[in-house]
Design a protein around this nucleic acid. Structure first.
Lengths: 244, 244
DNA sequence: CACAATTGTAATGTGGTTGTAACACGCAAC
DNA sequence: GTTGCGTGTTACAACCACATTACAATTGTG
């Protein structure tokens, strides 16, 4: 989970933020004084820093400057939390290298949303598809099986990506051709069979008894949504049988 | 210079912003209606989008959703400008994928500062890019390989910088041309190949067996995220070899 | 202006990828 | 069992994507 450093002298606000941010799933570290702030960040290496400007023993602006000039910490996002709302205060804060400037009083949920924005760019939400020991990384175009990278061709990759992105759903050869080969294809639908075979040879432990990519006779293919190790429960597929 | 798209129906505010942002050195494109917003962005490829929420003919939230779901535009920062100040409005706006949410009335200089933050995080976030014995310094435009300075041309540098800034991510020739040559390019995509070759000749110990810049057949190129020193672990892929 | 460096294109070769045909197999219905 | 249809599997030829070279056009520089 993401670690957030909170530097805030007001005990009530500190406790309130700690409670809400931890409820949100973040790990919290912090101080209520400004002196130890840089030291804390160096030790804890937080993923984000929430920084009050008016601290009893030091200035939040100076702390921000210190973070930005510290090569190991310079990349960490800083969000100011402050009661100083004047135009000049805002400009100074933002131009000092902060990533956001939030004026007290603020909505806790807005703060959380703004924290998430700082993390969002790095998120791997839709980037990674995982199922049954198989891991498909869209951004690096890599597929790993039990942590071992396999080399797939472009068409194999796109086909697997499409199937894995909608696990459990059965697609006809027609649909797969549209999705993977494009609408303006000039390709026989039997080509899909060959690619399914190639994928099985590369991904399945036993290609004769496929567990990941399922053939649905008369309909097409689908990627198994559950990583059931036993094949017994797989054979009498209730849904499809009912349809047939 | 950076190009900003402004979608704002209020003529007075539109003119005011246009004046101030152009004075700041930004190029401005824009519409005062919501309908053509996506089309405008597709054509102009702005570096940032300022978006009013309450437009006479459409909803700014929908436009933002459209931008985020459009693969060519999804990465562009969006800042909402709106009079809707309630907690719910803010949360919805921010969670829709916007990068900032500014409530009217606002300080022009604060807006400018917040715009600059969006650009800063993309470029200056890390001044020094290091990987695999390679060191790229953005501020001095120098690249060193094992502490030996190499002389790269401007285009070579920009291409390497872009690849190194997102290690592991595969970019199509199209994307590389957009990012390095500019989207209003008049360049064949084969040109990318030549520049990749030139970079490899300057950076790779053995250009025939590149370790830093990876070719991903059918997709494009990427900078290797892991600095694997030994090639042995890569070559004899047991799973695939066994199958083939 | 001459010269060098950079830039982008075209042409070439090569090896992996692609899609098809052909054949083998198995499931289902009669 | 037999028949027919849908699928698994193999082999192969055409093709495409990429690496590489050479070169013309452009830019920058003394």
């Amino acid at each position: 989970m993401r670690k957030i450093a909170l530097i805030e002298d007001d005990s009530d606000l500190y406790a309130l933020l700690k409670y809400n941010l931890e409820k949100e799933g973040f790990t919290l570290v912090g101080t209520q004084t400004g002196k130890g702030a840089i030291e804390l960040c160096r030790r804890e290496r937080p993923d984000l820093i929430l920084l009050d400007i008016m601290l009893p023993d030091s200035d939040g602006l100076d702390i921000c400057k210190g973070i930005r000039s510290h090569p190991e910490l310079a990349h960490i996002p800083v969000i100011f939390l402050t009661a100083r709302a004047s135009e000049t205060d805002r400009i100074v804060g933002l131009e000092l290298g902060a990533n956001d400037y939030i004026v007290k009083p603020f909505f806790i949920r807005e703060l959380i949303a703004r924290i998430k924005i700082q993390f969002r760019s790095q998120t791997t939400a839709t980037r990674l598809l995982k199922a049954g020991g198989l891991e498909l990384d869209r951004s690096s175009c890599r597929v790993r099986l039990h942590n071992q990278t396999l080399s797939l061709t472009a068409t194999e990759f796109r086909l697997l990506e499409f199937l894995m992105s909608r696990p459990g759903v059965v697609f006809s050869r027609e649909q797969l051709l549209d999705a993977v080969w494009g609408h303006d294809r000039a390709v026989t639908d039997r080509t899909v069979d060959v690619y399914i075979l190639r994928l099985r040879q590369k991904t399945e432990a036993d290609p004769t008894n496929p567990l990941l990519i399922r053939s649905v006779r008369g309909f097409g293919y689908s990627f198994n949504e559950s990583e059931l190790p036993s094949t017994a429960a797989d054979q009498p597929n209730p849904v499809v049988v009912a349809v047939q």
